[in-house]
Design a protein around this nucleic acid. Structure first.
Lengths: 167, 167
DNA sequence: ATCATTGCAAAAGATTTGCAAGGTC
DNA sequence: GACCTTGCAAATCTTTTGCAATGAT
């Protein structure tokens, strides 16, 4: 039901479920089976995901616990609104990750295997404030993605080259 | 025909037009009226733009110099390939900016007026290498967008608050 | 003459919306 | 019972693609 916030988590009083309940009540919104199914699924593992991969993990149409595609999109937007998820764009599609109870970080993106690797940098936070000051700009957030090739992919492509492979 | 590369430009031997000619010839591709119209329009000012805003600036269907939408998309992809333009995503759509003869930089994005402000940071370049090394990752590029509110927008919203405005 | 390029129409992919039916408080 | 939420179907928005006609070398 709940999940582990290991790697660098932050002290949080409420579970995502509880936090979302609060959010709903404060807005006169209602909790439903679909919202419960989604928050359960979304917070049961700490992977990055997009709407499609989330839907793949959910019960199909006709099965118990099915949630329609529009409702998935609507609910993901609510999770972002509630501060539970963070959303960003990658190759033209929306990608989501845990926000609530999870520290600010950025990503390395392997253009070979599409893997996202998280990293934290305090210097970057300083840098963004400094740049903001220099441009009369009130900074509220940022998004940094460093592209390249991860170690695994580099090792895989470095297979011994025979004569036939050349040219 | 040509344009100024003022603000922090880099020494370049060829105009974008010439550079593109080279690119085309090296690939057995042909130059056409459409490609000439587009390169002329794209490099006549140094703004960021998306496909739609570019098309708005071009002659309409029936007029002289018209370029169809698919050709605009195809040609923008060629410009990116040729190293003339850089492409990135903003709010779900593709945005282009000059790359050829223009130095590496990043952006402040005003979430109020959608303005993009360029800035350069050598520290960021160092930081990205450092992070790469720490994660066994060969860095090939990055994209940083700092969000916030620009000075103009802050001043506009800071209108004098009278008693009635409060609460 | 050959083969790249264009414009058209249509497709595709991701996300959003109108609305009647159903569910929650 | 009031009204929020859902699922469906369809719309939207941006970008891409198949293909026959056109154009460049």
């Amino acid at each position: 039901m709940s999940q582990d916030y290991s790697l660098g988590s932050v002290q949080t009083a409420l579970t995502p479920q509880e936090r979302f309940e609060e959010y709903l009540q404060s807005r006169g919104m209602r909790n439903t089976d679909q919202r419960r199914v989604l928050i359960e699924r979304v917070f049961s593992s700490h992977d990055h995901f997009d709407a499609d991969s989330l839907i793949e993990q959910l019960p199909r149409k006709g099965e118990d616990g099915y949630v329609s595609r529009p409702t998935v999109y609507r609910t993901l937007a609510e999770f972002v609104d509630a501060g539970l998820l963070r959303k960003f764009e990658l190759d033209g599609r929306a990608v989501y990750e845990h926000d609530y109870g999870y520290p600010q970080h950025d990503h390395l993106y392997c253009t070979q295997c599409q893997k996202l690797i998280e990293f934290k940098s305090d210097e970057l936070m300083q840098l963004r404030e400094q740049v903001g000051r220099a441009h009369d700009f009130r900074v509220t957030g940022h998004r940094l993605i460093i592209n390249g090739v991860c170690g695994d992919c580099r090792r895989q492509s470095r297979r011994p080259k025979r004569k036939q492979d050349l040219i």
